[in-house]
Design a protein around this nucleic acid. Structure first.
Length: 741
DNA sequence: TGACATATCATAATC
DNA sequence: TGATATGTCA
């Protein structure tokens, strides 16, 4: 039992708790994963509970994987236990019982892109004004309803049927019927349908209640109502439910997370044992103090304060830049300056509020030749070629999936345009069968435009064949077969452009993903594979070992830690975002986000803002974020408002307003001014000497180090250049030592 | 049907 | 500003 000795008293108390509900309030960096994994190990090793009887649910695959790895470290490899995300746990249950909800067990999962296509079709069919009822808007309402268990008719009952609500109701209803007809579920359905099956089928619920006698939930503050129901239903029989969370880190209310779930846990589950983990193992003292001075301003939080044995460490650094370019340059420079050959680039993270902020940092890092990695943006599985081939595979799994057929019917080009597709759709609807079955009808096929017939016949034949033989074929064989027999690969080869080569490369990469899964499980079935990739996410790609500065949003940084953290854009309207002001508790959620960001830092934390920011093509003066004003300024060193306000404000905390209009005074002392001069000279030089404004895509250039290269693409100020010597490099147009030739 | 020009819109993003 | 969605024309 010495593995428990590494825990502090509170952690240990939580780890050896066996029966009854438990709420672990785990502050940032307080070792909650350790506590959970040790508890699992304890239940198995000491209490003799079978892993079969334990369920651990997380939100991300990454968290699930980490938990599994760390439990295996404690009790040995090959753990046969459900450590899954909410969605994969529900998916696993639904694969057995989906017929109870009117689906077949090989239903497909629609991701947000698919949802968008479906709802757009519905909007068109109902002749609804797309300006007033955008797909995003309708989908957000639908998702919100599903998370709360509100059916279309419930929606009508609750909101009444005025003109607007009738439209929303109709679209919601139409959307649901399309999914049902296509034998497809969206992510929200996975949870909702599982809960409904539990509610309507006592024996199924009893089976899982009996199986999962011990339940653990990670990041409980992020659960929505449906997820809460899921957990609650399962826990009802044995009442052994342990949830871990931190109300201060609830940053996903906008997507349905209900902070009440954690705040009311003790009321929901009688005789709850509450344990607070307040010792922080991550950050130096000043960082914790500073973060606390911000989060303290929130009302309605469970009182707790992190503490550490660590030293106070460095002060928080604040820099008020002239504009966003200067801000980015400053950050890039600080990475260079403070790295001093010792810290790897991966010690640094830039955490911003919005994705649009990333570009300017890319440029600054390129200019200084600092390796970086941007997380977020296009997901690998959102790439066109991957979605295309997945659509083919989904059709093989489930030919009723009209959405997938519509996606690939003319991909590669087979001479089927919008008109033909509409006719086919109408026909399928009259005949009350799937698009695939309609198209597979010989008469229909003959009626297609002459040049389309052959290609379509070959495609339908391939899909039908693989569909019939799918249980005897390896996934990789189906994949290869589809690529070839549908002509998809060939069409890319014929194109023979840089872009098409990239796509082929991605398709090859995808195949290695398939191989990886097949190595793990040689009998992997198509539906198992589809299930795995359907639930993969971007953050899973974050490779902590890569030596590069990480750029990502504050949201995706949750759960991570870095020695040095930069938080740029500390401006009212950007962070907190202007939309937060319109919502009740909106600013509180932003403040929690600020807290999450600050507590990612281990040793050094930079906050920066820009006096002038160009956003969406508009240039404006900015006001410093109210979170800066809330910060305990005795913990901060740096620029601007902190210096200017020392005369007027003798408290250690700054007041709102108070004679300060937020615009900084150009005459105040700035410790960083000297650095700025260096930068400006450099830029001026570069701009005057060689801005490279004449370089276009397809041009040949000469680089002082890499020699000759070809400009593949230009994205803003960033050039993608293929060099004979070193391959493809990204360069900043106005900084790189290149010349057109 | 598909290539190009024009209009529009813009928080965060787990699964 | 810049990506994407829609509309127009050959």
């Amino acid at each position: 039992m010495d593995y428990l000795d590494k825990l502090n008293p509170q952690q240990k108390e939580a780890a050896i708790h066996k029966e009854g509900p438990m709420l672990i309030l785990a502050g940032a960096g307080s070792g909650k994963t350790s506590t959970m994994t040790h508890r699992i190990a304890y239940l198995i090793k000491e209490e003799g509970i079978s892993p079969y009887n334990i369920l651990a649910v997380t939100f991300t695959n990454k968290a699930a994987k980490e938990m599994r790895d760390r439990v295996e470290e404690l009790i040995g490899e090959g753990l046969n236990m459900w450590i899954l995300t909410f969605h994969s746990a529900c998916l696993r249950i639904l694969r057995k019982h989906a017929e109870r909800a009117g689906y077949t067990n090989d239903f497909v999962v629609y991701d947000p892109t698919d949802q968008k296509v479906v709802i757009k079709n519905c909007i068109k069919e109902h002749n609804v004004d797309e300006k007033k009822y955008s797909s995003a808007y309708i989908l957000s309402i639908i998702s919100d309803c599903k998370e709360k268990g509100i059916s279309p008719s419930d929606y009508a009952k609750r909101n009444g049927l005025d003109f607007k609500n009738e439209i929303i109701h109709d679209l919601y209803l139409a959307y649901e019927s399309v999914l049902k007809k296509n034998n497809a579920m969206d992510f929200d359905d996975l949870i909702k349908e599982t809960v409904e099956i539990f509610e309507k089928n006592e024996e199924i619920l009893a089976f899982y209640q009996n199986k999962f006698r011990y339940i653990m939930v990670d990041e409980y503050q992020d659960t929505n109502y449906m997820q809460y129901l899921f957990v609650k239903l399962l826990a009802k029989a044995h009442n052994n439910i342990c949830v871990v969370g931190d109300d201060d880190q609830c940053i996903y209310q906008w997507r349905g997370a209900d902070i009440k779930n954690i705040l009311n846990f003790e009321r929901d589950f009688k005789n709850t044992k509450v344990i607070k983990l307040e010792q922080n193992y991550r950050s130096d003292g000043n960082i914790l103090e500073a973060a606390h001075s911000v989060i303290e301003n929130n009302k309605g939080r469970k009182r707790k304060k992190l503490w550490t044995y660590k030293e106070k460490g460095e002060k928080i650094k604040y820099y008020r830049a002239d504009n966003e370019k200067d801000e980015a340059r400053y950050i890039a420079q600080e990475v260079d300056r403070t790295r001093s050959g010792e810290l790897p680039y991966s010690s640094f993270a830039v955490l911003y509020r919005t994705n649009v902020q990333s570009r300017i940092f890319e440029e600054a890092f390129l200019a200084r030749e600092i390796p970086y990695r941007v997380l977020g943006g296009i997901r690998y599985y959102d790439r066109k070629e991957i979605k295309d081939i997945m659509a083919y595979m989904r059709l093989v799994q489930n030919t009723a999936d009209d959405l997938s057929l519509a996606r690939i019917i003319n991909e590669p080009k087979r001479g089927i345009g919008g008109k033909t597709l509409e006719k086919l759709r109408a026909l399928a609807s009259v005949r009350n069968e799937s698009l695939f079955d309609t198209l597979a009808d010989n008469e229909v096929m003959e009626g297609l435009p002459a040049k389309a017939i052959e290609g379509v016949r070959e495609m339908i034949g391939a899909i039908r064949q693989f569909s019939q033989e799918k249980d005897n074929l390896k996934v990789s064989d189906i994949y290869d077969g589809l690529l070839v027999r549908t002509g998809y690969l060939k069409s890319l080869e014929i194109l023979n452009t840089v872009e098409s080569e990239g796509r082929i490369e991605n398709l090859l990469e995808f195949k290695s993903v398939i191989y990886d899964y097949e190595n793990e499980d040689p009998r992997l079935s198509l539906s198992e594979f589809m299930e795995k990739v359907a639930l993969l996410a971007e953050i899973d790609n974050h490779d902590a070992g890569e030596n590069a500065v990480v750029l990502m949003t504050l949201h995706s940084a949750k759960g991570l830690e870095f020695p040095v953290v930069f938080m740029p854009g500390m401006e009212d309207g950007l962070f907190p975002g202007w939309r937060a002001f319109e919502k009740p508790d909106g600013v509180e959620e932003e403040r929690r986000l600020c807290y999450v960001g600050m507590t990612r830092a281990m040793q050094r934390l930079y906050l920066t803002s820009a006096e002038i920011r160009t956003l969406y093509g508009k240039t404006n003066y900015t006001k410093e974020s109210q979170f800066l004003l809330e910060l305990d300024k005795s913990l901060v060193e740096g620029d601007a408002i902190y210096k200017s306000s020392t005369t007027s404000d003798s408290n250690s905390r700054l007041n709102h307003g108070g004679g300060n209009d937020g615009y900084s005074n150009p005459n105040i002392f700035r410790p960083f001014d000297q650095l700025k001069y260096i930068k400006y000279n450099k830029t001026a030089e570069a701009a005057a000497g060689n801005a490279n404004l004449d370089i276009k895509e397809g041009d040949k250039v000469r680089h002082s180090k890499f020699g000759e290269g070809l400009v593949l693409s230009i994205k803003g100020e960033i050039l993608n250049v293929a060099f004979d010597s070193v391959g493809v490099k990204m360069l900043a147009r106005d900084m790189a030592p290149i010349k057109k030739i």
